[in-house]
Design a protein around this nucleic acid. Structure first.
Length: 463
RNA sequence: UCCGGAGUAGCUCAGUCGGUAGAGCAGGCGGCUGUUAACCGCCGGGUCGGGAGUUCAAGUCUCUCCUCCGGAGCCA
């Protein structure tokens, strides 16, 4: 019977000598000298792969010598102590089976490529050190998110991808339609008759699962969503993609303070998990991608997050003596430069900025007693700025109805949302975290297109 | 969408004052007694992003379009 395949991450931990070990993977480099060939094999399970030593006695020695980078191979042999520096153990090959040769035009070289180039071969880039590490960390973070909430009794709610409502009341959405774009049905006035469309109304890809999550919070208490969301904005930045993943917990009987406490525990859990579970990858990011990354993450993990009302933040910014590109005054949105100054220079650790002017926040956020602010919160962290946005939700029917009208949103579309305030309304809160932003923060990667497998941005939906 | 930068070999880049293009890596062949993104030698490889213009002559100067990158806005 054939011995089972051992993943390389496990093979390198075996105590030598250990014979009959079977691995499968892809060649990163081939180094041939007269008597012996060194193959660096990687199967994606770890950063460094495994060095395979194949000598001239093998029947297909000549084939091995001419193997190309990128080829898929299967190797059976003995794990032995490596006599040379560079690795603790290596695999002395007894048999090398070529599973799939790589054409000589294989575009990944054994040298540094630019991230821009690798984006053009997104179907191959997971075979590089950087992207392999990114996507391992991304996977571990996704799991850590579920663990965090599941361990606290939260219910995972699958909110819909297709929606008829617009959670923010702003932001371009992708239309979902089965009408013939060249010849849509028309009303008597000549407008497109959406009543004839698949859902008998206009429909879009969701920009947020929050409103749906709220319906489950008002009934199941502690819930969260974790799924894809879509924005049709023509944003061309290193921080925006058209399709991204968002985590949105929603909790009944939580006020804004409870909300902040949960967000703080959540961020700390994700950071400590990734530091613990991905030491090899994190070491790589710390050395090659962002110097000091691990220390910065440890600092966030170990420090108490500060809290500061928006009004106080504005005063601090005004008194800072810094020359900002955009002026600060009460009522203005905080710009990226302001957020960075607050968290990096002013408080020197993560900070929750709370109680924003109602004019710059969404309709569903709870109106404060001062009449001018809402119970909103943004978490600002050193290095990236805003990481989390959340709020205590407006639970009073009359107030919510009024703010909905003020926002110019069609009340009939939100009827079900208002029902939550009619039938057993309760104080509740929630927040949203863009998953890719978190992956960027954890890895030090500077472009969001490099932390999602197949990024969708304006003019780009290949692969 | 706005502002700035950049498009030269498969990849990363150099190319001076306008005179028809070069290196490293990758690929092919050979060498090397254990390499570490091995090393050494030889060989093949180019519509200089597209189009137009100026000029005896354009990778180089001008205009224009396209694409990418960075920053900003919007936001997550």
């Amino acid at each position: 019977m054939q011995t089972p395949r051992v993943r390389i991450v496990d093979a390198v931990e075996l105590t030598p000598p250990q014979s009959g070990i079977r691995i499968k993977g892809w060649l990163r480099t081939v180094r041939a000298s007269k008597q012996v060939v060194f193959l660096d094999v990687n199967d994606g399970s770890n950063m460094n792969g495994l060095q395979v030593v194949a000598d001239e006695s093998l029947p297909n020695a000549e084939e091995i010598r001419h193997l190309t980078t990128g080829s898929a191979v299967e190797i059976v042999g003995e794990i032995v102590e490596s006599p040379a520096k560079g690795q603790k153990v290596e695999l002395k090959a007894a048999e090398v089976i070529v599973l799939g040769k790589a054409d000589p035009e294989y575009p990944l070289q054994k040298k540094r490529h630019s991230f821009e180039y690798l984006r053009t071969i997104a179907h191959l880039r997971n075979r590089t050190n950087t992207y392999g590490a990114v996507f391992r960390v991304r996977s571990v973070l996704a799991h850590a998110i579920h663990c965090f909430f599941q361990d606290r009794g939260f219910v995972y709610v699958h909110t819909p991808i297709i929606t008829a409502s617009d959670a923010e009341g702003a932001g371009e959405m992708f239309r979902v339609s089965t009408l013939d774009p060249t010849n849509p049905p028309r009303t008597e006035s000549g407008a497109v008759d959406w009543g004839e469309d698949f859902f008998a109304r206009q429909a879009f890809l969701t920009v947020s699962g929050q409103l749906n999550a709220e319906t489950f919070a008002i009934g199941m208490s502690d819930v969260y969503t974790f799924g894809p969301t879509f924005r049709a904005e023509n944003s061309n930045t290193a921080r925006h993609v058209s399709e991204f993943w968002m985590i949105e917990p929603e909790m009944a009987f939580y006020d804004l303070d409870d909300n902040c406490a949960l967000a703080e525990a959540f961020v700390k859990h994700l950071i400590s998990t990734v530091l613990e579970r991905c030491p090899e990858d994190m070491e790589f990011f710390d050395q090659r991608i962002q110097k000091g990354l691990i220390e910065r993450l440890q600092h966030v993990r170990d420090s108490g997050f500060a809290r500061m009302p928006y009004g106080e933040a504005v005063k601090a910014l005004e008194a800072s003596g810094e020359s900002f590109e955009y002026p600060v005054h009460f009522g203005a949105n905080l710009q990226a430069e302001h957020e960075r100054w607050l968290t990096e220079k002013h408080v020197g650790r993560p900070v929750f900025v709370t109680d924003y002017p109602k004019e710059i926040k969404a309709f569903y956020m709870r109106r404060n007693d001062d009449g001018r602010t809402v119970a909103a919160v943004d978490l600002l962290v050193p290095g990236v700025g805003e990481l989390i946005g959340g709020s205590q939700r407006e639970e009073r029917l009359d107030v919510l109805t009024a703010t909905l009208t003020e926002s110019g949103l069609p009340a009939e579309v939100y009827d079900w949302y208002l029902d939550l305030r009619r039938f057993g309304t309760a104080v509740h809160s929630g927040f949203g975290l863009g998953f890719e932003r978190m992956v960027m923060y954890a890895t030090g990667m500077q472009n969001i297109r490099d932390v999602i497998p197949f990024p969708r941005t304006p003019r780009h939906a290949e692969f």
